[in-house]
Amino acid sequence: MSKGLDGESVGTVMLITNDELLSRRFHIYQLKEDGTASSGAFTDPDMSVDRASMRTIDESLSEYPYMGVAQIVAGEARSLEQEVVPVPQLLNLAHAEVRGKKTKAIAKKLARSSVVVRAPKAVADAETTKTEATQAGPRTTE
């Protein structure tokens, strides 16, 4: 069992395999002109990611509609001496971290290996999207 932010148990933690995709949110200023993510998106020592097999891109961006998402493969991070660990949270069981010192060289390699699956939006565009979503009302599932 793992503990959530408030110490409550959030379920059994499944290990992250080397072929698992990890989704990393990033800001518009971390998007290069060629449409790829810059190394600046991959510098945090305890880099927060979502496990793509457990959380959709839309779910990852639900509270951050202006951000983009780049995906990396867990094994690529591990090959750069990074530890990839599940860190489920009460409201996000897909949360994980890529832990380790991110030198400029490591951040660049992570960026080069990443694939941008959703480009970030300008803040004005994100506010419009958020307003439209609010006006549409709650989502329902069939």
Rank of each mutant, 00 (worst) to 15 (best):
D44I: 05
M1Q: 12
E132V: 13
I57R: 00
E20C: 09
A133S: 14
P88N: 03
A122S: 11
V49A: 05
Q82H: 11
A74H: 03
D6G: 09
S53A: 15
H95V: 02
Q82E: 11
A52V: 10
T128D: 11
A105C: 03
D6C: 13
S2F: 04
M14V: 10
E33I: 08
K32N: 14
P45R: 12
G35R: 03
V13N: 10
L31W: 07
A94V: 04
Q71R: 07
E76D: 15
V117F: 00
M1V: 14
L31K: 08
S48P: 04
A77E: 01
P138A: 14
E33G: 10
T140R: 14
A126P: 07
I28E: 09
T56K: 01
M54I: 00
R118T: 08
D46K: 04
S113G: 09
G35N: 06
V10R: 01
K102Q: 10
A122K: 13
L90C: 08
A126V: 11
P86R: 06
A37S: 14
D50E: 12
L22C: 05
V84W: 05
H27K: 12
G100W: 06
A133W: 04
G7V: 12
R25S: 05
P45G: 02
S60V: 00
D50G: 06
T56Q: 01
A122Y: 08
A122F: 08
A52E: 06
R118P: 03
Y64N: 14
T43H: 03
D6R: 15
A52S: 12
L31N: 09
T128F: 04
G68Q: 02
I72S: 02
L91A: 10
T134Q: 14
G11K: 11
S9R: 13
L110D: 01
I28D: 05
L80D: 13
D19V: 08
H95A: 04
G68M: 03
D125I: 05
M67V: 00
V123G: 03
N18P: 10
L90V: 11
A122E: 12
Y66W: 10
F26G: 00
A111C: 06
K102A: 04
L91F: 10
